[in-house]
């Protein structure tokens, strides 16, 4: 055993480097390690360490959301579902709900189509090209949403870069109206959410042993068949994870639709804002919020079931 004497490591850097080999050795002895860790600290001490997080979650997450959603059923006449009836009765609100889900679906599908090949390509890269490609994905992910929204506003506005490029190429005769349309919201949201699709797909693709592909080829599988029967099924968890993430964020996205969608392109999020800050109708806002949250949870459940069915279908032939 080459465990450092605990009193020795004053330098965290060295300690971190030595920690890695120790941990891989420990992984093989998972069972004794678990009992050891369980017995090391008193449950009461561990619960005490967890308490601050619990308090913050209850105070700043559970209570606020609960209070907001409860607004929807408490009306002047007491408990009522009138707000939900209004949501279903009025064609305007049904249109907005459907538009929100349609955009969420389009954004998810476009992201999937763009992200899968990119993630697949990433698994073949090594060294500097790999680092550069990952940097190109992580940099936008960690850049402010407002920077990206501003960039798209600059690109798509009436005298913007896209329009002047198209004009000078002679493809159009007069500037197109791109900003404050569904198109603008779609493009910007795909741009913002794409990394959320690439990263989970990449990590599930990377987990597939290369030998599996070689085995399929040695058994005579053509590349397409190898992809369909080996790579695709094994990457499904990443695909579903990415789709859930992108769809759930997309249907609740506020900043980009508010800035690039314009007043005629209301989505549920911008409608909630309007109800809460301009109309001051908190109870209807709460009903919209509850609907959105239910849709998000439902989509997670549905996609998981879909994945189960798909992997069973592929396994059977």
């Amino acid at each position: 055993m080459s465990i450092n004497p605990p009193s020795l490591p004053p330098s965290p850097l060295r300690a971190a480097r030595t920690a890695a080999p120790v941990s891989t050795r420990g992984a093989r002895f998972a069972a004794p390690r678990r009992t050891l860790a369980g017995g090391l600290y008193r449950p009461a001490f561990l619960a005490l360490l967890l308490a601050p997080l619990g308090i913050v979650y209850v105070a700043a997450f559970v209570y606020p959301i609960g209070a907001f959603l409860l607004e929807s059923v408490w009306t002047k006449e007491g408990l009522s579902l009138a707000n939900y009836a209004r949501l279903v009765d009025q064609p305007l609100y049904v249109t907005i709900l459907l538009r929100t889900f349609r955009i969420g679906l389009y954004v998810t599908l476009i992201c999937l189509v763009l992200a899968y090949p990119l993630a697949y390509w990433l698994t073949r890269l090594r060294g500097l090209p790999f680092s550069l490609a990952v940097a190109c994905i992580l940099l936008p992910l960690w850049t402010s949403v407002l920077v990206r929204t501003y960039a798209w506003a600059v690109l798509l506005r009436h005298g913007g870069i896209v329009n002047s490029a198209l004009l000078s190429l002679g493809l159009i005769n007069e500037p197109l109206t791109l900003l404050y349309t569904e198109f603008a919201v779609l493009v910007a949201m795909v741009h913002i959410l794409l990394p959320f699709m690439v990263l989970p797909i990449y990590s599930s693709l990377r987990g597939i042993p290369r030998d599996l592909g070689r085995a399929a080829q040695s058994l005579g599988a053509r590349p397409a068949r190898e992809f369909l029967h080996v790579v695709l099924p094994l990457s499904l968890p990443g695909v579903v994870g990415g789709c859930v993430m992108v769809f759930v964020i997309a249907i609740g996205y506020f900043i980009t639709p508010a800035l690039l969608g314009g007043p005629r392109m209301l989505l549920v999020s911008t409608l909630i804002n309007q109800q809460v800050t301009s109309v001051l109708n908190w109870s209807f806002g709460g009903a919209l919020g509850a609907t959105l949250l239910a849709a998000a949870l439902l989509s997670i459940v549905l996609l998981r079931m879909l994945m189960g069915a798909a992997s069973r279908w592929i396994a059977e032939g």
């Binding site: 907001f68 996205y253 949250l293």
Partner: peptide, 8 residues
């Protein structure tokens, strides 16, 4: 969804 947390 961010809008729900934010409004809450």
């Amino acid at each position: 969804p961010a809008i729900i947390t934010a409004v809450g």
